[in-house]
Design a protein around this nucleic acid. Structure first.
Lengths: 228, 228
DNA sequence: ACCTGAACACCGTTCAAGT
DNA sequence: ACCTGAACACCGTTCAAGT
């Protein structure tokens, strides 16, 4: 029940387009593997080309610049997500959609990073947008507010997934640790007494964020929220 | 009423530390100016050094690597924000805190980008964290849930500010426009009928996100929310 | 239409040397 | 402690040329 039918449409204008698309596909697959295994820095035109045993410039026949390749990678990865869930409550539709989104982000932990990068938004992001719009219309929101909610949900999903993928603590270097302690000396009482037991549960945190936003939408939809 | 006292603390171990810190400061100011005027790519060790009429390697006496410099820039920019607001309701405290956060992000539109980059989280991010923790304790949340709410708020603030700063549409290239139309053909009905009048109001969108999350917290705090 | 080879104008960072 | 100069191992992309 995927929203976007994945690149099956036949182009009518030429016959042997297959080759071109196969090649494009191959490049993306290699690049995604590099991204998954060695991180964003490994995805250079030169690295990708060398894995494919080809000149860097050969890639420019398929992608006009690196950003287009990154977009291709992100699109390819996100196509694996089934944003559409089973019929049901708008709450569950949204939960399903963004759980699916988070799912592919965890399978390809560096995809959020390249999505965050300069204008690298592939067309596929319209799929979760569609799901969200439909769900929130049934909830009674205006299109404008539904879009706003969508951006909120995407932001949180991407950010938490990225944070989860790239290590728990952004560990400052030793030097800055000291400086930060110095800063921390000045009235960070809430932080000093901070009380959280056990390891950080990323999934629970994601679900909590989801709940906050959904409950917020609920209030907004039923008109219980005070106007500012 | 700033939370973090900005680098005024005197280091006791040497006398002419002034020079070192002045230089560090100078580097950051030049780098931030480059970031603001020419974007993240302009902030290279070589560019920064050349503006300062100095060898690239001279910078490494003050920052052990580029990431440390980026962290320094982000910290410097964020120090200009007054996250602490006037006393008051936890709702208004949070609103004030993240409006201030958004404010510096708009003054330095590329700061969100470098914050999103690899582990570039300066110690100053603890300031809004402190404010949020305090506010949400008075709202009755556990520290764990308060932290989760904090991450939600930061994610949304940064993401929307970044989106606002870097042009309204991530305009796909012509080629991909066509492909996206093709994809859009398949059942994107909600998007096709999408009805939003006038230009996109970024500030209103931010305020709406803020409201969603705050109202969600409210529900969570008063225990009205159904447990999953 | 697709690929190569050489070149251009950049990167971050190491290392040895100077003061 | 701070800075230089040369070098290493990379980048993305243009351009002219081949098939």
């Amino acid at each position: 029940v995927k929203t976007a039918s994945p690149r099956r449409t036949r182009r009518t204008k030429s016959r042997v387009r297959q080759t071109r698309d196969l090649s494009r596909q191959k490049i993306i697959e290699v690049a995604l593997r590099l991204l998954d295994r060695e991180g964003p820095d490994a995805v250079s035109m030169r690295r990708v080309a060398s894995v494919l045993r080809v000149t860097p410039m050969a890639l420019y026949n398929h992608f006009s610049h690196k950003k287009a390749l990154l977009r291709g990678i992100a699109e390819y990865a996100l196509q694996q997500a089934a944003f559409d869930g089973p019929e049901g409550d708008w709450r569950e539709q949204i939960r399903h959609c963004f759980r699916a989104f988070r799912g592919v982000c965890l399978q390809h932990p560096n995809v959020p990073r390249i999505l965050e990068m300069a204008g690298v938004a592939p067309a596929i992001v319209f799929a979760p947008m569609e799901v969200t719009l439909r769900a929130l219309r049934t909830a009674g929101l205006s299109d404008q507010n539904a879009l706003r909610a969508y951006f909120t949900l995407v932001a949180v999903t991407l950010s938490l997934a990225s944070y989860e993928a790239n290590g728990p603590v952004p560990d400052l270097e030793p030097v800055e640790q000291v400086r930060s302690r110095r800063i921390a000396g000045h009235g960070y009482s809430a932080l000093e007494q901070l009380n959280v037991q056990g390891d950080w549960d990323y999934e629970a945190a994601f679900e909590y964020s989801l709940s906050l936003i959904i409950q917020g939408i609920e209030v907004e939809a039923t008109g219980t929220g005070r106007k500012k």
